[in-house]
């Protein structure tokens, strides 16, 4: 397992970086590796986070897109508005990046950021995030869903949130392509609370595999790994702070490290849970890919299983590396 030297005094440069960062209110809430590739504060725009789109043919025809890749919805700059409080605002400033699904079971919304690698080694993404199902204002609505019934503390909305995912799309060294993927599965389609971390054991189906007739997935399929049997649970469930109702936004710290030299996971942190992911396998495509040398993409996604609109909010994101 690669080591991350987090001692503040392992060299002068590190000490200076730590001191400077601690004096910066925007960066001091992060713990980046030495080279910051991106610091995305969504008060100043989208910073390149865009809807993941499938590959289309040379004529630009929508009909050439994989069905399950056609409708991932564009990210929004959200002021976190709700029916009861008005504008909630983000953790820092007014705006967060919001991924919003359609009100359709299985629908996924995505935001992807496209970079390339100028080296190999440790690569880290950090984010402050919150997740919500869309609020309901309807006297005829159900007061419970799955495991969650309204009791003044529990709220059906919590069980209406499916999953959020952070993942990469990486390629290099003569076309070796792979994804690292971490998913928080909050609940299933029936509202049974799972609160599990998961990872897929197969690489994501690609448009080339569709073009070659190897896959043909329906609308709203799980594009990351469509077969539920291809997902493994990591560790014990982790309860997060959904905070009772769908209009309170509490921000969670996420930090995830991978190693692009060894093509391995390293560690995953969500708030106070630090998880050793060094043994979590990284499935690599058997075939080589062109046009992708040094590909470095991160994406976040949110998937509704209940059919209620699901939202993933990102206050800010830092991507850093040790190369």
């Amino acid at each position: 397992m690669p080591t991350i030297d987090r001692s503040p005094d392992h060299d002068l440069a590190s000490t200076l970086r730590t001191a400077l960062r601690s004096a910066d209110p925007q960066l001091s809430k992060f713990d980046p590796l030495p080279r910051i590739l991106a610091h995305d504060d969504f008060n100043s725009g989208l910073h390149g986070w865009v809807e993941l789109g499938g590959n289309y043919n040379g004529k630009g025809e929508y009909s050439s897109l994989d069905r399950h890749f056609r409708d991932f919805r564009p990210p929004q700059l959200s002021s976190c508005d709700f029916f009861d409080v008005g504008t909630h605002g983000a953790m820092s400033g007014t705006y967060a990046l919001k991924l919003a699904t359609r009100p359709y079971p299985g629908h996924t919304a995505t935001g992807i950021r496209r970079l390339t690698m100028s080296g190999r080694g440790l690569l880290q993404i950090e984010a402050y995030l919150a997740y919500k199902a869309e609020a309901v204002v309807d006297p005829a609505a159900e007061n419970g869903f799955g495991d969650m019934a309204w009791d003044g503390n529990s709220h059906p909305s919590e069980a209406q949130f499916g999953a959020f995912t952070v993942a990469t799309d990486l390629c290099g060294d003569d076309g070796i392509r792979y994804h690292t993927v971490a998913r928080y599965q909050n609940a299933d389609e029936n509202g049974n609370m799972l609160r599990q971390w998961k990872y897929p054991t197969v690489p994501e189906p690609t448009p080339r595999e569709h073009y070659e007739g190897k896959v043909d997935l329906p609308y709203a399929a799980d594009f990351t790994a469509p077969d539920p049997d291809d997902w493994q649970v990591y560790g014990e469930p982790q309860e997060l702070c959904m905070n009772e109702v769908p209009t309170k936004v509490n921000w969670h710290y996420l930090r995830w490290v991978i190693d692009t030299r060894t093509r391995r996971n390293v560690e995953l942190q969500l708030n106070d849970r630090l998880m050793d992911w060094s043994d979590v396998p990284v499935p690599i495509y058997e075939e080589r890919y062109g046009s992708l040398e040094n590909l470095l993409n991160f994406y976040f996604s949110v998937r509704s299983l209940s059919g209620q609109r699901n939202f993933l909010y990102l206050d800010s994101v830092v991507i850093s590396a040790d190369w």
Binding site: Y62, Q76, L77, S78, S79, D81, T94, Y95, A100, R102
Partner: peptide, 20 residues
């Protein structure tokens, strides 16, 4: 269309393009 948050924007314009 799906709800879209636009508090940050001062100008907006819809384009509806018929592909067929």
């Amino acid at each position: 269309t799906e709800p879209f948050e636009v508090a940050w924007a001062g100008e907006a314009r819809w384009f509806l393009q018929f592909l067929s």
